[in-house]
């Protein structure tokens, strides 16, 4: 099985949900120091605390960029709780290509950034609850 499958290359060349979000609820950046990859996630929640818009920006290898693009396609409408539960192995499964240990961080960079943003988005909400 080829790591550079048609789907991966398609998402790399034509990334979905790439860009920035106005008035984002939360923003987070994850780096992969090994390759200099960088993914920034910006997300906006709707009134029911579900993802209204989520976008990524940054640069990196085909695997990290395609994985972020593919992941973000599935996130609109999801609650923060649902996103927190996404497992690394689900990303690997979604990519459906052989990921060597050296490329694992590339594949998961988007997920890590998303989780970081979700954590930030969840914080003010929780603290507000506490202050009430």
């Amino acid at each position: 099985m080829d790591i550079y499958s048609e789907i991966i290359l398609d998402h790399y060349k034509n990334p979905r949900n790439k860009g920035s979000v106005k008035n984002a609820t939360a923003t987070a950046i994850e780096h992969n120091p090994l390759c200099g990859d960088k993914i920034k996630i910006e997300l906006l929640l709707d009134k029911s605390n579900r993802i209204k818009t989520i976008k990524f920006s940054g640069s990196g290898c085909a695997i990290s960029q395609a994985a972020a693009s593919m992941l973000l396609e599935t996130l609109t409408g999801k609650t923060l709780n649902e996103i927190e539960k996404i497992k690394s192995r689900e990303i690997i499964k979604m990519l459906n290509i052989p990921i060597s240990p050296a490329r694992e961080k590339c594949a998961l960079l988007g997920l890590y950034a998303v989780k970081k943003a979700v954590e930030l988005a969840a914080k003010p909400r929780n603290s507000k609850k506490r202050s009430k």
Binding site: Y4, D37, C61, A62
Partner: peptide, 26 residues
């Protein structure tokens, strides 16, 4: 438009081992 890690990965499929990354020189 091709990241060095992708270059090195494809070179590897041909048995050609090359370095990619920041080379400890950020």
């Amino acid at each position: 438009n091709i990241h060095p890690h992708d270059i090195a990965q494809i070179f590897d499929t041909e048995g050609v081992e090359i370095r990619s990354g920041h080379h400890c020189c950020e």
